[in-house]
Design a protein around this nucleic acid. Structure first.
Length: 280
DNA sequence: AACGGAACCTGAAAGC
DNA sequence: TGCTTTCAGGTTCCGT
């Protein structure tokens, strides 16, 4: 599922495909993930618009259009993804047929290529709104600072975590405090920093918070490097390859000490960790 | 404020 | 084999 690194790669791909290009036409299916945004409004709102900028905050994507100054706000949810089809892609194109059922919207660019949004489980969300509306939307307004930025500021993560008695794993995933970390990178960052997922966030302390910030950045950077490509792959994709150190590796040996990786549930989510390495 | 749990969805995987 | 159940997870919402 997409977390900060996957959304960042999506933003980079969208820029490479479409920055500065004009949308010739757009189409969509009614209902989720577009919800109240009707296909007609999407089509009229995107047609003729130039893609001015593509930004990311946490897991949220913003596609800025001109001259309308409208913003297409996109959250990938669990299974959302953008794909690109070059002009003249064959009709017999197999991947295209397979994804046809879950295609929720698409647009054709001025070079004839097509950008499509695929979302099988329909947990994604798409809105077309003004800049002001985009920023004021509860889903965006509630977001904390971007996790990647916070982890690069000295003392940044420590400030986010101080005074929180909630378990560190749960605190890291709270988008109101830190935007972008989800279930996978919370587990991976804690493993790299050798911190027990159940430790109250306020007990992490400044020194270990700095180590944790480094661990999170390292885990995210590694994914950005390994998962880069025209189609961003998620771990659970068919044929997808789990490059993570502990995520979804219950029972497998810890890459550091060979102790079997354990799985627990925190706030309704799977946590993977090494009991021996992450004792404190 | 903070937490737990259900709901939203569908497909893959496991169970029968 | 084929039908049914379970599970996964980002986020919101509801209730305690």
């Amino acid at each position: 599922m997409p977390e900060l690194p996957e959304v960042e790669l999506t933003a980079r791909n969208l820029r490479a495909w479409s920055l500065g290009r004009v949308i010739r036409r757009a189409a969509a299916r009614p209902g989720t993930p577009l919800r109240t945004l009707t296909p007609a409004r999407l089509a009229s709102g995107l047609g003729g618009q130039k893609i001015e900028a593509i930004e990311r905050h946490g897991k949220q994507l913003f596609i800025r259009l001109a001259p309308s100054e409208l913003v297409l706000s996109v959250h990938l949810g669990m299974t959302g993804r953008f794909v690109h089809r070059a002009r003249g892609d064959g009709v017999a194109d197999a991947p295209r047929r397979r994804s046809a059922k879950s295609e929720r919207m698409s647009w054709t660019l001025d070079d004839g290529s097509v950008v499509a949004f695929i979302d099988p489980r329909r947990f994604g969300r798409v809105r077309l709104e003004s800049e002001t509306q985009a920023r004021a939307h509860p889903e965006v307004k509630k977001l904390g600072p971007d996790a990647y930025q916070v982890c690069h500021e000295p003392g940044g993560l420590a400030r986010v975590l101080e005074r929180l008695k909630t378990p560190i794993k749960v605190a890291l995933m709270d988008q109101r405090r830190l935007a972008g970390i989800g279930n996978i990178y919370a587990s991976e960052g804690l493993f790299r920093a050798k911190i027990a997922p159940s430790l109250p966030a306020r007990d992490v302390g400044k020194k270990r918070a700095a180590i944790l910030a480094k661990g999170l950045v390292a885990a995210m950077d590694e994914s950005i490097r390994l998962e880069a490509g025209e189609e961003v792959r998620y771990v659970e994709d068919p044929g997808g390859w789990n490059h993570f150190r502990v995520y979804d590796r219950e029972g497998q040996p810890c890459p550091r000490c060979r102790t079997p990786i354990e799985r627990t549930v925190q706030a309704g989510r799977s946590t993977f960790f090494c009991h021996r390495c992450q004792a404190g």
